[in-house]
């Protein structure tokens, strides 16, 4: 065991590049009314790269737009304030982490799995009548703690990967055995540091061990989306392993084969498009 203390992790979190101020403000005000639409458009237009990526996202197939969106104002009119907020945040977070390197960690597989979970969570949320934008965002960030560990403590994480491959264990078990903590705890700490709303912190913290909740909420949705994304083999990893699916969440989701097939199909269809927009370095 090569333990890593939460204090060290928190120090690594503080060393991460700061999110753009506009994103911090948007996220901390997640529960507020759509009061600042004009303000948002006005300030976002000063960040050209973020604006461009947000508009590309708005025009991608998984947002199902009828007409082409060419300005942030138009995007707000069509997708709503919350929709645009989720797009901006997504674009900003992906930008902040993209240029990392590690000898044995598969970054491309990591992001592909994150995007697959986000797209699947959005489709599950649609089915359950939950906010699809939140589900997408949490899905994208559910494993973000792993990125903190890999970039902040690369040597520690190399040992986790070696241990995991050696024992063919679940990655989260390897983290606990080698480090004494796991990516869910770390991700939740990062979400707290970024002042993301409590429901996001909780869903990230509990995505491997959701507490029973009826009806199923974001934690259960992210848990299921994570398992489904692995099951659909979208991570581009020969040794991928599907995590244990909670019996309670599966039962409470109560989805028949027809609906499940539809969710799988939509997820696979939207996945490649989403990867192309979210994971391409240009723009």
């Amino acid at each position: 065991m090569t333990p890593l203390s939460m204090n060290e992790v928190v120090k690594n979190i503080r060393d991460l590049p700061a999110l753009p101020v506009i994103v911090m403000e948007l996220m901390s005000a997640l529960d507020e009314e759509d009061s600042g639409s004009n303000d948002l458009a006005e300030r976002l237009s000063r960040d050209q790269a973020l604006t461009a990526k947000t508009l590309r996202l708005a025009n991608s197939s998984f947002y199902g737009m009828q007409s082409k969106v060419t300005s942030i104002q138009q995007a707000i009119a069509i997708l709503g304030f919350n929709g645009v907020r989720s797009l901006v945040t997504t674009a900003a977070i992906l930008g902040g982490f993209s240029s990392s390197a590690h000898s044995t960690f598969n970054f491309s597989g990591f992001w592909r799995h994150s995007v697959a979970t986000a797209v699947c969570a959005k489709n599950l949320a649609k089915q359950l009548g939950l906010n699809q934008d939140y589900a997408f965002m949490i899905g994208l960030l559910h494993d973000i703690g792993r990125l903190v560990l890999v970039t902040g403590s690369p040597e520690h994480y190399a040992k986790v990967i070696a241990h995991q491959q050696d024992k063919d264990s679940y990655p989260i078990e390897a983290e606990r055995e080698v480090l004494g903590l796991d990516h869910a705890m770390v991700g939740s700490a990062l979400a707290a540091h970024w002042k993301f709303p409590p429901l996001m912190q909780k869903a990230i913290l509990d995505h491997h061990a959701p507490l029973p909740e009826m009806p199923v909420s974001f934690t259960g949705v992210i848990h299921a989306a994570d398992c489904i994304a692995h099951g659909l083999d979208l991570s581009d990893n020969d040794n991928d392993l599907v995590p244990r699916m909670s019996d309670t969440v599966w039962k409470n989701l109560n989805l028949g084969q027809k609906v499940l097939s539809e969710i799988y199909r939509e997820t696979e269809t939207q996945f490649e498009d989403a990867c192309q927009i979210l994971l391409t370095k240009t723009a």
């Binding site: 063919d168 398992c227 099951g231 659909l232 392993l241 244990r244 699916m245 909670s246 097939s261 199909r265």
Partner: peptide, 22 residues
């Protein structure tokens, strides 16, 4: 292979079956 550690996990097995059906 993807579900190789899922023996006797009811919900995980159900997920595997539903993806196979799909």
């Amino acid at each position: 292979s993807l579900f190789r550690k899922s023996a006797n996990q009811n919900a995980t097995n159900a997920l595997q079956n539903s993806i196979l059906l799909y």
